[in-house]
Simulated assay, not measured.
Amino acid sequence: MKVMVGVPSYNNAETIGFVIKQAAEGLKKYFGGGIIVNADGGSSDGTREVVLKTQVPDGVEVQSFVYKWPIPGKGSAMKELMEFAREKEADILVFVDSDLRSITPEWIYKFTKPIEEGYDFVAPYYIRHKYDGTITNNIAYPMTASLYGKNIRQPIGGDFGISAKLFDVYLKDEEIWKSNVARFGVDIFLTTTAIAEGFRVTQTTLGLKIHDPKDPAASLGPMFNQVVGTLFMLMKKYEEKWKHVRKIDEVPIWGESTYEEPEAVNVTLELLKIRAKELFAQNEEILRRALSKETFEGVKKALKTFDFDDVLWSHVLFDGAIAYKDGILNEADPLVPLYFAKTADFVEKTRDMSTLEAEKLIKERAKTFLDEKDYLLEHW
């Protein structure tokens, strides 16, 4: 098996050297060598210099290039890494993020071994703090599980293993790479496409994920727009796949699961509430058109108390998807204040819970979305 590790980056000089070193040791230990390729977005902090200066074992080749695809973003880097892997005739491509502080050499093995055993797509299964991954927990996970019927816990985890069979599938439509797939929409695109196109998917245990998390109210608005916009776009593309799904199937988890409480991630609750109200006021008219009357009134009530239950939240996202399909919404951005409000609700309800206890609420959310799927089908 010829294994390539792809590392997209942009101004990650402080962390990428560690990622390259761990990946190189994994390639050497488990495969006798391999190639690591960094696709950079034109960093100004010396990221590529760090990559190329990192000491790696004999048999491991390291390359770095600035991607040429004109849209700046993580997806553009990953697109060209897949093209590079295809040219090099790699059998397996492992993507790892450039800000990881918890990656070990074993991660490379854990992403590649399931593919050697016949899987095509390997999603990460790691432990994250209850407030790390709010877009995953509130949107990407429950929507993916309820729509496509696969219980993949980290559909936008950032780190993936893919078989060479998927290269052509992901790259065949160049137009899709002119959308938010070229940015942070890429992870939900990779996961959804693998499921919807019928490839064998699994998850691999990686323990704790420690990286550079972001405070949702301060910095996750653009990421929300890109991820959710892509999710809505794919719902249009694959509606004949998800319309008939009525249950959530468990997806195998490769490896032994262990648990330890992750390091805390700070969320500024008051800022979430302030931003939710401010942005709702700015987007009230478009939201009145995008949401059903019942959903809109429910949202206005929730913004007074920040008690935002999962049934109402599912209707917000389902209405948003329908408005996107019908051209009322051209992007997901007007829904950002409601994401902030839902995140505030989750923080309020879980402040005294451990991550493991909070996890139960997130799993229940996916079941609620499935239970409410008739609402989506009736209005779609």
Rank of each mutant, 00 (worst) to 15 (best):
G229C: 10
K209L: 15
F184D: 05
S179A: 00
K237A: 01
G185L: 06
T205L: 03
I188C: 03
A182G: 12
T191N: 05
H211K: 09
L208N: 03
T204A: 12
V186D: 11
D212K: 14
M235C: 08
V201L: 11
E239A: 00
M223L: 08
S179R: 06
F224S: 06
E240S: 15
N225P: 00
K178A: 00
V181H: 04
L234T: 11
F199K: 03
V228D: 09
S179F: 01
Q203A: 07
H211V: 03
T191K: 05
G229M: 05
A218G: 03
F224P: 04
Q226W: 12
L220M: 15
I188Y: 03
L190F: 14
T193N: 06
R183H: 07
A196Y: 00
D212H: 14
E197M: 06
A217C: 10
N225Y: 00
G185V: 11
L231M: 15
M223G: 00
G207E: 10
T202V: 13
R200L: 13
H211D: 15
A194C: 09
T202Q: 11
V227P: 01
F224A: 04
H211F: 13
F189P: 07
S219W: 12
F189L: 03
V201S: 08
F184I: 00
N180K: 07
S179P: 10
P216H: 05
K214A: 12
A194L: 06
Q226D: 10
G185D: 04
G207V: 09
G185I: 12
V227G: 01
D212N: 13
T192I: 14
I195T: 04
V186P: 01
G207D: 09
N180S: 15
V228M: 08
D212Q: 14
E239D: 15
L190C: 07
L208S: 06
A217S: 13
R183S: 08
G185M: 05
R200C: 07
P213V: 08
F189S: 04
P222A: 07
A196V: 14
M223K: 04
I188F: 03
I195W: 04
P222T: 11
K214G: 01
E197R: 06
F232H: 12
D212F: 13
T193L: 03
L220Y: 05
L220A: 03
L234V: 11
R183M: 12
V186M: 02
F189G: 07
E240F: 10
L220R: 12
Q203N: 09
L206I: 14
G198K: 07
L208C: 02
S179M: 03
P216C: 12
E239I: 12
M233E: 12
F199I: 09
R200P: 01
M235P: 02
P222G: 03
K214D: 04
D212S: 15
T192W: 01
G185R: 01
T191Q: 06
Y238V: 10
G198N: 08
F184E: 08
T192A: 09
T204S: 14
M233S: 14
P222N: 07
E240M: 10
F189A: 05
L190R: 02
E240K: 15
V201D: 11
G229K: 01
T230K: 07
T192K: 09
E240P: 00
D187M: 06
K236P: 00
A182V: 09
P216A: 05
F199L: 05
N180C: 09
G221P: 00
H211Q: 10
K214F: 13
E239L: 01
S179L: 05
S179N: 02
L206E: 06
I210N: 11
T202A: 10
F199P: 11
V201C: 13
